[in-house]
Design a protein around this nucleic acid. Structure first.
Lengths: 122, 122
DNA sequence: CGGAATCCCTATCGATACTG
DNA sequence: CAGTATCGATAGGGATTCCG
């Protein structure tokens, strides 16, 4: 989902939003930073073990370009970098929450389905 | 985002949700079906001119497998097929709404930014 | 520690053409 | 109309190495 909003002239709200948060791991990253903030790269990696480092860094860069997150570099040795949600990024909380809520519903729905199938087998 | 929840044993709610609705065009498709339902393939294409037909069909199939949408085939010539949100799919309305709302906020945020930059140039 | 860089492979995407 | 088929392009991703 690397269509940048900067390149296009017109967007509906959903297209604009999806161009920014539609990336493969972006919602997951934002979820992390809503759980705890700021986070160092290595900490995000612990939250998201399935994402390889290169991808994670790419997605973090894109989010940074779009001002969703802020990246603080401390000039120390060894390096210390912290990521944090910006003003507009924090407003994504309802999006993440509604997705998690729906996930809960979907899980229940799946379990109901399993029960139904088990009943059918009797 | 073709990690199917069926293959994994454990998921957080967000991972489960993202495995189902995280696909490239799925939120957009669900958005369409919340605007109007049922919709024929050609009608969805009008809503989403940026999505090519093959991708659209693939994503529709995946959503169908996951019971998010229902596909009705009328046995007529020429073919008529209608897509509709299912019970659990309809519950995605808050997700889509919150994304659109955030898109509005982000647009405002961008415009503020433009103004700031213009002021800086004076 | 937090990356950048490289190689390399696969999955997904997208356009076009074709079909019942 | 609602799809398949095909093919080349691109994004995703793993592993490893190197650097300040």
């Amino acid at each position: 989902m690397e269509t940048q909003y900067k390149e296009k002239t017109f967007f509906t709200s959903k297209d604009l939003a999806l161009s920014v948060i539609g990336g493969r791991w972006k919602i997951a990253i934002i979820w992390c930073l809503l759980q705890q903030s700021p986070l160092r790269l290595s900490e995000i990696q612990k939250y998201l073990p399935d994402v390889n480092q290169r991808m994670l860094i790419r997605q973090l860069r894109e989010l940074e370009e779009d001002k969703i997150i802020t990246r603080y570099v401390y000039p120390v040795v060894p390096p210390k970098v912290e990521y944090e949600l910006g003003e507009i990024g924090l407003l994504l909380e309802p999006v993440v929450t509604s997705i998690c809520d729906w996930g809960d519903n979907f899980r229940e729905y799946l379990e109901k389905d399993v029960n139904k199938n088990q009943l059918n087998k009797i």
